[in-house]
């Protein structure tokens, strides 16, 4: 797992995906920071954080699109799958490498908070809670899009479907508003990622939401392992 983790992290930087991801993330978050906090002269960062949600919906699939699809295309997965490592080790190695990339991106918010603390009091607890929200949503989304990547050998397909899927997850409560059957609407609402995320941005640290995000991550990583199992057994 360690070897895969290190290689994956290295490949983010050699393939320049890391730079693109970080640059785009920093640029957009910087803009939203400027627009919602600096320009309106407030130390409230919730505006920034709710906008960041949309950015990660688009950027996370870019980060994960090649994690498995490229291995399949270049036939390098054959090397991994015939090496003395477990499937879980392969999936988690890649998962944590991607997660670390993601953390490098989102940690920029602390810099923004520091800048704000220059001008006024920043409520650090809320910043931290927001940061954790971003982190946990990322945990879930990375697992989901990596799963998508494991289903195809085309990076573009992986990215497009990843973005679409995350969009659907992002808009679950919006979709729920159009569903006439209460029963289904309730289910969709309770699955809503945005609502849970929104709670965090208001400073509410809800353990059940954390659990929701973490279990989503676990389930989708498990599914990715199953994809490999299935391919081997079919």
């Amino acid at each position: 797992m360690g070897a895969i983790f290190r290689r994956e992290l290295g490949s983010f930087f050699t393939s320049s995906i890391a730079y693109v991801f970080l640059a785009v993330f920093y640029a957009f978050s910087g803009y939203f920071f400027y627009a919602s906090s600096l320009y309106s002269a407030t130390t409230d960062m919730s505006g920034l954080f709710s906008s960041l949600f949309l950015i990660i919906v688009i950027l996370i699939p870019v980060l994960t699109m090649k994690s498995f699809s490229e291995e399949k295309k270049q036939k390098t997965e054959q090397g991994l799958l015939t090496a003395p490592v477990s499937l879980g080790g392969i999936v988690l190695g890649k998962y944590f490498a991607t997660l670390l990339m993601y953390i490098m991106g989102i940690s920029i918010v602390f810099v923004y908070a520091l800048i704000l603390s220059y001008f006024g009091d920043v409520s650090w607890n809320i910043v931290l809670s927001n940061y954790l929200a971003l982190f946990f949503v990322g945990c879930a989304f990375i697992a989901v899009t990596m799963f998508v990547s494991s289903l195809t050998e085309n990076q573009v397909v992986a990215a497009v479907f990843g973005i679409l899927l995350l969009m659907v997850l992002y808009l679950l409560d919006f979709i729920a508003g159009y569903v006439k059957i209460d029963f289904i609407a309730n289910i969709l609402n309770s699955l809503s990622f945005y609502e849970k995320y929104y709670e965090f941005t208001c400073g509410i640290f809800n353990l059940s939401s954390v659990l929701f995000f973490v279990s989503t991550a676990v389930i989708f990583n498990f599914l990715t392992v199953r994809v490999f199992e299935k391919r081997r057994w079919s």
């Binding site: 290689r7 050699t14 390098t76």
Partner: peptide, 11 residues
């Protein structure tokens, strides 16, 4: 050694 060597081309 598989038919197509499992090489990471960017390394």
């Amino acid at each position: 050694l598989p038919e197509i060597p499992p090489l990471y081309l960017d390394m």
